[in-house]
């Protein structure tokens, strides 16, 4: 995935100039769109799964265009270990919180005074958990595949 000869700064006349500039412009919007999908998921199509994949796609696009090393600076691998677990714990923790507050596991109605508001908060929390897990797992899988050294040479195509 990472192409070392294209990462060198002196190689200015690379054939991917347009790709680089356009993607540099697009990647923030892709990430923003992921959060729109996340927080607008209650009202339109979307939710944690889609938002997580879109957020991971922005990191993957960055890695494809600028190389894996640059992507690992922007989205450090240490975030992955933390994010994967935080997401699952956030989901489970919401359930346990509902449990402690007197409801059943994952019954969000007890999270607020009004049952419907409790449901809103609960869904928001678990969607955040799903977002964190999905996004970090997708990035982790891409990093794992991308940083493996290939046996094949490019002439084998």
């Amino acid at each position: 995935m990472s192409n070392p000869e294209q990462q060198s700064p002196d190689n200015m006349q690379d054939p991917h100039l347009i790709l680089r500039i356009i993607s540099k412009f697009l990647i923030p919007f892709i990430a923003l769109f992921a959060f729109y999908v996340q927080f607008h998921g209650d009202f339109g199509p979307g939710g944690g799964f889609q938002a997580g994949v879109i957020l991971a796609a922005s990191v993957i696009l960055y890695a494809l265009i600028f190389g894996l090393d640059a992507a690992k600076k922007a989205f450090p691998p240490s975030w992955i270990r933390i994010g994967m677990t935080i997401g699952v714990l956030l989901y489970g923790g919401t359930g346990v919180l509902a449990w402690i507050l007197g409801g059943e596991f994952l019954n969000y109605s007890v999270l607020a005074h009004d049952a419907a508001h409790g449901q809103h908060y609960g869904i928001l929390a678990i969607e955040l958990g799903v977002l964190t897990t999905v996004a970090t797992v997708m990035v982790a899988i891409f990093y794992a595949f991308g940083s493996r050294q290939p046996d094949l040479q490019n002439e084998d195509w």
């Binding site: 939710g47 799964f49 994949v53 999905v134 797992v137 997708m138 899988i141 794992a144 595949f145 493996r148």
Partner: peptide, 20 residues
């Protein structure tokens, strides 16, 4: 199906890792 799609790509990744 929504959840099945995402789980599907996760299991596909496991399969591809085994292939590698």
């Amino acid at each position: 199906i929504l959840t099945a799609i995402v789980v599907g790509v996760a299991t596909l990744a496991i399969g591809l890792a085994l292939v590698v």
